[in-house]
């Protein structure tokens, strides 16, 4: 049985027919064409499908799409502008925190959620936030540096505003 629901993704409202057993991940990728959110383990253990919902990093593979009505969903497609990358993305690029790039969207979204709430995180807070993500290439080392750099970029940006 399908339901027609309205999802708010990156500020846009999408009216979409979904089966109640479909996850947000399936709907984002298969119905809305938002393939930036990657499909990984599908059971909540790798973090590659991280999206931000109402300000919090969540796993699109473990959310039913029907449960996401009325919530504000941000995906990786929604954080950069036409002209520039989001400071978190720019920091990941500059610090060499991206290798194969498969885990990157999820980790960028996780980091963004962290910095939105905690603009100057310490190492422990960064590790805590990233504990549910998984990067097999970088050993997480440059990712830690990138999150700190992103924090600096964001503060510099705020100052110049």
């Amino acid at each position: 049985m399908k339901k027609i629901i309205t999802l708010e993704v990156n500020g846009d409202l999408h009216e979409v027919a979904v089966a109640v057993h479909q996850t947000l991940l399936e709907v984002l990728r298969d119905k809305l064409g938002l393939t930036g959110t990657k499909r990984g383990c599908a059971v909540g253990t790798c973090g590659v499908c991280t999206v931000i919902i109402d300000g919090k990093a969540m796993l699109a593979c473990l959310l039913l799409a029907v449960e996401c009505q009325g919530r504000s969903i941000t995906t990786i497609e929604g954080i950069s502008s036409a002209d520039e990358l989001h400071p978190v993305q720019q920091a990941f690029v500059d610090q060499g925190a991206i290798q194969c790039g498969f885990c990157t969207p999820g980790i960028v979204m996780t980091s963004k959620a962290l910095l939105d709430k905690t603009p100057r995180p310490d190492d422990e807070q960064i590790r805590e936030a990233l504990a549910g993500t998984f990067c097999r290439c970088t050993g997480h080392i440059k990712i830690m540096e990138a999150v700190k750099t992103a924090s600096q970029y964001e503060r510099a940006e705020k100052k110049s505003d």
Partner: peptide, 21 residues
């Protein structure tokens, strides 16, 4: 001289295509 990877900006946006995409 250190420099970021050429494909890193695109990868950071999630728009780099992987097979499942």
């Amino acid at each position: 001289k250190s420099r970021p990877k050429l494909d890193a900006p695109l990868k950071s946006t999630g728009r780099s295509l992987f097979t499942d995409d």
